[in-house]
Design a protein around this nucleic acid. Structure first.
Lengths: 326, 326
DNA sequence: CTGTTAGCGCCTTCAA
DNA sequence: TTGAAGGCGCTAACAG
């Protein structure tokens, strides 16, 4: 069933059918009715591939994440999906597992015209081979990126957020504040780490320790805490780079008999709703997850529509939510 | 940059370039080299849309979920993505928020040839309008569906799993076992409910109560527990249809001073890794989440390759993981 | 082994 | 207000 058959059945030309299909003006009402009737009658569905080829736009956006299982990611993706949908775009989801070759395979869909643009949440800005694949195609980095770098981005004030949180902990009397960070290839990891260092520096605190979780599963948080507890002088406060890791920390602290928050303050990152349900309820640095996704789409669409407009960088704000854990 | 330019630059025909591109045999080695050289030199990237139109296959699979934020969903989707990728397919993610019109909009991509098939995790089997949109296109239901129904599906032994779990609770001396169920439009909700009823029936237990969570966020679990606690005789055991809901239950039990597991056993569903990190560690009915995704893709691809083979139904097994909560 | 040719299904100028 | 015709970029017969 093609546009041509519809045209024949309706006794008009393919051009007219196309005009009806796309709500173009300049079709007599009676003609339109006739075409619409035929379309309904034979359940005609336009071939979108052909349309995409012809118009050279797919109205499809690619989203590259390293792991959709990370609840932070999935919430951002939900925001992306919602805003895309609202603008008539669809989402191609790519779970890269941080494997460069998979990312490369996916990014070739850009030059293949299968997608009109890409939102990445992965740490790819420092991978020249991938940047080259992206080339000049519309691209927005989400929750990752350096405002001073090329490439549009929607990020969060990682540096300040952690810096302020460390300062708050110090005010509250904590002396040995540790950071459980994630994969240091991400710029946001580096930014958070820098904020951490700066705050300790400002307060002239000598004690500092950074552990790296090899993963964003709570198990990794547990293991990081084990390593911290094995230190000659263990921390009396921990900032975790994800609420997921914080769950592991809370768990192991309980198991090891470390009282939270009395002997150990624990602060997560992200602001996932179940944080409030932990025991004790988890303090956290809340990110506007949905909004990160929404704004990323808005920037990307702007870029698709005006490829040569200046690059935009947007920084949203985090906010410390204090609960019982620290 | 099109195949034609490459052909011209290499001094061959477009057919030859196409053959090289697709690794077809019957191209002299020297010719192949020459073409490859030109392709590399001018960074030619084939237009995948054109190829898809021509071959009438997009190598793209649609995944329809109601909410990617549900950790069960995101883990299944990860399995889907992995297996699809391994077979050279990509994933189009659709977050329907259970809105029929959104689902309909997405499903039109099937007839639009943008995707070769669809995996649904939503409750759509009882929505005639959506089933009609799917028509005879390759379709597999994942984690949802009735083996006796038309439409291929990969499900889990919901009925038996809950039945066995209730029986186990009874053996352990529980008398008043409640079920916190989800959206009853899902077949799996109905199956679990049936298993629950059957087990109580078999044991001649009169007390029974089912609450419905309006949502799969832990808040909904909290609220459901509040309603159960308000009962004249509250339950001494609860099975929750999701670990996420169970977190809310554990939280509110703690808040209300209800001892778990002493006066209330709590058993979740799904087997999310952080369940073991709760306080107390959460017992749960574990589903093979990754495998659900993997098998769904395998069935779907089989269907795409042999549209007229008999429909397959596959049932994977759940397994009760007993921890401290009940 | 390679080239010519005919579409895939659609949109869109240009004429009528 | 409508139709005819060309072409988006590619693949796959069919010839040679």
């Amino acid at each position: 069933m093609s546009i041509e058959k519809v045209a024949r059945l309706a006794g008009v030309s393919t051009a007219t059918v196309s005009r009806v299909l796309n709500n173009h003006p300049g079709v007599r009402a009676t003609t339109r009715e006739k075409v619409l009737a035929v379309i309904a009658e034979c359940h005609y569905q336009p071939n979108l591939l052909a349309r995409q080829l012809r118009t050279s736009q797919s109205r499809m956006l690619m989203v590259l994440v390293s792991n959709i299982t990370n609840p932070f990611c999935s919430r951002v993706v939900r925001g992306i999906e919602a805003e895309a949908e609202a603008n008539g775009y669809h989402i191609l989801l790519c779970n890269s597992e941080s494997q460069t070759e998979r990312e490369a395979a996916y990014l070739s869909l850009l030059s293949g015209k299968v997608v009109d643009g890409v939102i990445t949440m992965d740490a790819i800005s420092n991978l020249p081979s991938l940047r080259q694949l992206i080339g000049d195609y519309p691209w927005v980095q989400c929750a990752e990126g350096d405002p001073n770098d090329q490439g549009a981005s929607v990020t969060v004030n990682n540096y300040e957020a952690v810096m302020a949180t460390v300062a708050t902990l110090i005010e509250r009397g904590r002396q040995r504040i540790a950071l459980i960070n994630g994969d240091p290839r991400y710029l946001f990891s580096q930014q958070r780490e820098a904020g951490y260092r700066k705050a300790l520096d400002d307060a002239n605190l000598a004690w500092s320790h950074i552990e790296y979780a090899h993963d964003v599963e709570c198990q990794a948080g547990s293991e990081a805490l084990e390593r911290l507890l094995a230190l000659p002088t263990p921390p009396d406060a921990i900032i975790t780079v994800s609420d997921v890791l914080a769950v592991g920390v809370l768990h192991t602290a309980r198991e090891r008999g470390v009282a939270v928050p009395e002997s150990l303050a624990v602060i997560g990152f992200d602001g996932l709703p179940w944080g409030a349900m932990m025991s004790p309820p988890l303090s956290t640095i809340e990110q506007p997850m949905h909004q990160l996704g929404v704004r990323s789409v808005q920037l990307l669409l702007a870029r698709i529509r005006q490829p040569h407009a200046p690059l935009q960088h947007e920084q949203l704000r985090c906010r410390l939510v204090t609960r019982a854990s620290g």
